[in-house]
Design a protein around this nucleic acid. Sequence first.
DNA 1: ATTTAGTGTCTAAAAATTAGACAATCGGCG
DNA 2: CGCCGATTGTCTAATTTTTAGACACTAAAT
Lengths: 175, 175
Amino acid sequence: MQNYGTVLVIDDNEAILTALKYCLAGTFERVMTLNSPESVLKVLEQEEICLILLDMNFTLGVNSGQDGLLWLQAIRKHHPEIPVVLITAYADVSLAVRGLKRGAADFITKPWDNDELVRKLKDVLDAADEVATLDEVEAEHIRRAIDRFHGNLTQAAEVLGITRQTLYNKMKKLQ
Amino acid sequence: MQNYGTVLVIDDNEAILTALKYCLAGTFERVMTLNSPESVLKVLEQEEICLILLDMNFTLGVNSGQDGLLWLQAIRKHHPEIPVVLITAYADVSLAVRGLKRGAADFITKPWDNDELVRKLKDVLDAADEVATLDEVEAEHIRRAIDRFHGNLTQAAEVLGITRQTLYNKMKKLQ
DNA sequence: ATTTAGTGTCTAAAAATTAGACAATCGGCG
DNA sequence: CGCCGATTGTCTAATTTTTAGACACTAAAT
């Protein structure tokens, strides 16, 4: 089993922080908690965080999830490599969709099932582990670009910023 | 305004197909419909489809959305470049999350608002339009890999499948 | 104090990319 | 039908990038 490092939990409810702390202590090397997202960017500068579990509502009386979406955006802007899992008691389909489209790794609803939560977080970290080679990424992007132009290699090469001959060469290598 | 090409709508309810056809006819050059996903892969071979709008339930009495998820998976496996938007009357958070994590471009709930639907589909196609250069993709992937190994260039170079010196060169070019 | 892993830098050979050219082919259109 | 523009497949030769390998240096761990 791999080492799951430090998880950062952000929620304004101390009882929930405590519960999550105990729930995650068995799996993660370290569980850091914040009762407000205000200082999250500062924390991310100083600490090496593997995963963030982020509540979505921090303004009293507002449960739209807008706070969470904005903080998600801020975190991903500065640290796109750190997976962020959203968690909220006021979940609806629209909010989940908006969260995932803005780059959340998963979306959890309160109340949560401890085992399921741990399993989902593990899945996220295992997925984040895989790093493709440059050649693989390049090949995939090339395929997309060619598809995008319905097989027109001249146009595909142009938007890819390489010459047509280079595109030929690269395609030959990939059969 | 750009050309929005052909959209393929898949739903087993003829009334809904008709409604969507009229709703989308104003925006898309052509609206194809299927009342079953069975033949979708065959259709995708023969037709040039820009976007798929896929219902999630095709087995009578089963509304888990499992059908839709499986067809989504099949479509994305063979045509990862075609955006798939899911639509269902039996939406819940978990289903939306699973759909988006499997590569759906968006997730719509029935009943839908015509204007909103059209806007969302346009957004999806506009986003699919942007093709980054190979250098941009490469740079982004390199940044991720280096982050993943906390700045260890030797390890990053190894998983990227390039030599450490090459990683140096590429980093120098990107300031 | 010794070992291990990583850095920054260098060389020379090998490989990839480039601009540019060319004839052949395709599709649309009068 | 025959023209035309765009695209393809294929070259060359110059340029740039990548490579393996080496070296001294630093930081961290034993």
